[in-house]
């Protein structure tokens, strides 16, 4: 125990300590974030780069993905978006907004037994294409919808 503690202390401060502490089993799993946050994917600035950062080689447009969202969002700070996939073995659903400072808004992992459907609310800086990227049976598919924004939601 003491040796582990030394190693943790030596390693420095901040996130590094947390990660080490988790690795050493000092922090209960589930207490600290058990899952990683895909920093690379959330830093991308285009649809194609985001697909790559999420592990896809490319994506095919599909009619089996339904994006339900307003055509015109009066308030870009709160834009409701629902995505439903009819693709068999849907494993994940990601929401991307092409013209936001970073493209990826959210990535939901859908285990067996959970409907391939999710609703959330996102911020949009300006009128943009919104992509729904679905990972199904290891492959990537997408649908796209343009949402017009009257007042942007990223500024002050």
């Amino acid at each position: 125990m003491d040796i582990k503690r030394r190693e943790v202390l030596k390693a420095g401060s901040g996130a590094g300590v947390l990660a080490l502490a988790a690795a050493a089993g000092l922090v209960k799993p589930g207490e600290a974030s058990a899952q990683e946050w895909n920093k690379a994917a959330f830093g991308t600035k285009s649809f194609a780069d985001t697909v790559k950062a999420l592990g896809g080689g490319g994506s095919t447009e599909s009619r089996d993905i339904q994006i339900t969202a307003p055509d015109i969002a009066e308030n870009g700070a709160v834009v409701p978006i629902s995505i439903e996939s009819r693709l068999a073995k849907t494993q994940a659903i990601a929401i991307m907004i092409e013209k936001n400072p970073n493209t990826l808004s959210a990535n939901f992992e859908i285990p067996d037994g959970t409907d391939p459907f999710v609703t959330t609310r996102v911020k949009m800086g300006e009128t943009s294409n919104v992509y729904a990227l679905v990972k199904a049976d290891g492959r990537y598919f997408h649908a796209v919808k343009e949402i017009k924004v009257t007042v942007g939601g990223c500024g002050g």
Binding site: Q35, V78, S105, A106, T114, T119, V122
Partner: peptide, 16 residues
Amino acid sequence: LSAQWGPAISKNPFMH
């Protein structure tokens, strides 16, 4: 369900 979010999710996040 598990999710990773960026800062583009709206204030006081909603999920369904």
